[in-house]
Design a protein around this nucleic acid. Structure first.
Lengths: 344, 344
DNA sequence: ACATATGCCGTAAACGTTTACGACGATGGA
DNA sequence: TCCATCGTCGTAAACGTTTACGGCATATGT
């Protein structure tokens, strides 16, 4: 095992000088720095993270907590991996590594986060699946650990957040539906307390109200995410009478199962019912093509990374963003699934 | 910050005794152990991982390396998250935590792994997307870091591996096709050197040969994974003349795009062409339903976790599996997509 | 009674870094 | 010549644990 000690007496230097050379400190001769770097690469030296962390209190790692299991919105791989990619490009510029912390369905998310933070695995955290009332936020704030949430919350500890613009999605989808004559509009929401559900629900209800319509409790459907959830939404939809003529989905992962469930009953999306989804996985090749709102996930990742750096004392000079609270610009992809027009 | 020191003089004990009490060592009075544990929970004490790691050389974390980016088989979220879940349940029993290390497309996987290992982030590794010739294996072996690979490789360092039975998939799919009269069979493979591609290719070719058929180079299609890749496979398929009447897919993620690409040209899966896929994400509700092979991903995760523990000196007593090399039992899901029968 | 064993605990070293501090020689100005 | 400054480097303490070792009682055996 080659440590700084070995490096030092291989060069006839003290460990202090070697350390300073490696860390780009000013008080070391330029020649000796070159020698040190050369020797370090020759001997395959890599600083032991435990030693460094113990002394500096920093680990050089940022955690991104996601939850697994059927009751969570697993989204498409492309959702998280693309976001991760964006975060990583930002962090790598500052020699920070992103590690993904996954809390399995069998473990309490609050306890899991607690453990990870208190063990000092990470210098900062990004948490997703933000709940409307989320104890994790208060905890992270109390530990003074820099963090950003993907998704707003009602619990406010002054944190930064990034979010998908579910308000715009709900508003614009309903406006589009209304314009095409729909009056019986439904919405598919997640089951749990995740904040985006509340936002989307409020946006849909408000925009309907502005147009003299009401979002009934019966038309507010709830399900697990994913294909099975989508199939369940179809079942709920078919049980309604009169059946809604339009529906907006909180998540595209519902689309495949929803399509199947409807088509099994002779109902063709775009002809017999209008559907608008929300990009979370690639559904470009669904048939009929899905009309949906989307956002640049890579930019979401970049924004998350920068917002986090801005809240870390060591980097806030480089990212003087202060507190970041921002919804992402939405793009609109017109497909065939909302082609239905209702005559007055 | 509450460390073992604070705990110690809050109890009027030495740090040595406190440490022993917390670590379940025998030479500590049962009463004082109780007092220590009580105080630890009262004061919210959690051992500092850096200090512990520095002393013990262990981090308590296991890394699972996955690669992101369009050229990798992102599979469905459900693929990896379900596998992760299985691994975690095994590891958690021994107070080990699983962290996911993702190597973005812009970084060299070998360098990335090197960095993570040499910094001593983890006590063991699981690597996926195993290549036929994979330098990571030699590296991990040279560092004597316990590791398991998901997927076989030709580079043999005596490591344990688990793998999906692509040989059985290729064999059984071709046998099924042949039985139904198909003579012009194609296979869709990944672009890179990933080992499963070689295995599947060999199995298809061999089984065809056993039936007096030959797998031509033209019928060996290659594409990125995912929907776009599937669409590309459709394009390649349509360019062939005579067009293959059956195809086996290395990955279900291709199915959606493939379906779309075929149906755009009036070719209906199951009627005009037979398709057999391989479970990697939930495609239960595709229409026509996809015939496919699958495996229990959770068991895969559990097997991976146990194989890893078996190769860690501290745990091999509990998991006396020795070196594990095992392909998973495959399940078969019959759908509509391979219904086409060719008359002689 | 004495020697030995046992249970329990404190002491201190060690893990690999970083960094405050001081030492030393060289340089510069007066 | 003397003092101050500067550049460069070595020294040593500190971060929070774990653990080998020894010490001190008390218990156990003759």
């Amino acid at each position: 095992m080659v440590g700084i000690k070995r490096l030092a007496d291989h060069l006839n230097l003290s460990i202090g000088t070697v350390s300073r050379a490696l860390n780009d400190r000013p008080d070391v001769n330029e020649d000796t720095r070159k020698r040190v770097l050369q020797a370090a690469s020759d001997l395959n030296y890599v600083a032991n993270q435990s030693g460094r962390s113990l002394r500096s209190g920093l680990t050089g790692a940022i955690g991104f907590m996601v939850q697994t299991g059927p009751q969570f919105n697993v989204q498409g791989d492309n959702f998280f991996t693309t976001v991760f990619d964006g975060v990583q490009t930002v962090l790598n510029r500052h020699h920070l590594d992103l590690i993904v912390l996954l809390c399995s369905a069998s473990e309490d998310p609050d306890q899991y986060l607690r453990r990870m933070v208190l063990r000092r695995f990470v210098d900062g955290m990004i948490i997703s699946h933000t709940l409307r009332e989320d104890p994790r936020i208060a905890f992270l704030a109390s530990r003074r650990l820099p963090f950003v949430t993907l998704g707003r919350s009602q619990t406010d500890a002054g944190q930064s957040w990034l979010d998908i613009d579910f308000d715009a999605i709900g508003r614009r989808a309903v406006e589009r539906f209304v314009q095409r004559g729909h009056r019986n509009i439904a919405v598919a929401l997640p089951l749990d307390d995740i904040n985006l559900g509340h936002v989307l629900h409020a946006a849909v209800a408000a925009t309907m109200a502005q147009n003299g319509l009401t979002l009934t409790a019966a038309n507010t459907l709830r399900s697990h995410p994913g294909e099975i959830g989508g199939h369940e939404v179809a079942r709920q939809l078919l049980a309604l009478s009169p059946r809604p003529t339009a529906i907006v989905l909180s998540d595209d992962s519902l689309a495949v199962g929803l399509y199947r469930g409807l088509m099994e009953n002779g109902i063709l999306p775009g002809r017999d019912i209008s559907i608008i989804g929300r990009d979370s996985l690639p559904v470009r090749f669904l048939s009929p093509t899905l009309t949906r709102f989307g956002q640049s996930l890579r930019n979401l990742g970049i924004d998350l990374g920068e917002a986090l750096l801005a809240s870390m004392p060591a980097y806030e000079r480089l990212y003087p963003l202060g507190r970041v609270r921002k919804v992402l610009d939405m793009q609109f992809f017109e497909g065939e699934s909302d082609a239905l027009t209702i005559a007055n």
